[in-house]
């Protein structure tokens, strides 16, 4: 049933800075982002995307800069790869600067301060 892999504690995730983890041989980049939930209360989200930059063929995504694109309800959280600064949407893995490539996206969950990653990437949302 549950294949979720416990990878680290939430405390090991620095807000708005990525870390890399190994999830069953896959290199995954985790980003803890503090935002607000629908009530406007502060809430933490943990995004998980592939650690490999498909443009550079190097495992560096976790070291990118977190940011956002768009405003209000259209705002999307992003990470800019440190290599050639391609910007990826964290929720869907799409590359917003060059749609020819994308990152795999993984599901995460946090329970009791532990962060879990599901090893099967979510198939990309079709644009």
């Amino acid at each position: 049933m549950s294949e979720w892999v416990a990878v680290c504690t939430k405390g090991q995730l620095i807000p708005e800075r990525g870390v890399a983890v190994l999830v069953r041989e896959q290199q995954v980049a985790l980003f803890r982002v503090t935002g607000t939930d629908e009530k406007g209360d502060p809430a933490d989200f943990v995004y998980a995307v592939g650690h490999r930059d498909p443009f550079a063929d190097a495992n560096v995504i976790a070291r990118g800069i977190v940011g956002s694109v768009g405003h209000g309800p259209e705002q999307r959280d992003t990470v800019a790869s440190p290599m050639y600064k391609h910007v990826f949407a964290l929720a869907t893995g799409e590359c917003l600067t060059d749609p020819s490539e994308s990152l795999p996206v993984y599901r995460t969950w946090i329970a009791g301060g532990v962060v879990y990653v599901h090893p099967v990437p979510v198939s990309l949302l079709v644009a």
Binding site: I14, R17, A56, A58, V60, R63, G64, I65, V66, M83
Partner: peptide
């Protein structure tokens, strides 16, 4: 430092220069 860490490009963040293989 915590608030600044999130702002830095990886070079500044780890105080070294990123190379093509990561």
């Amino acid at each position: 430092d915590a608030d600044q860490a999130r702002l830095q490009d990886t070079n500044d963040h780890v105080m070294a220069n990123l190379q093509k293989d990561g």
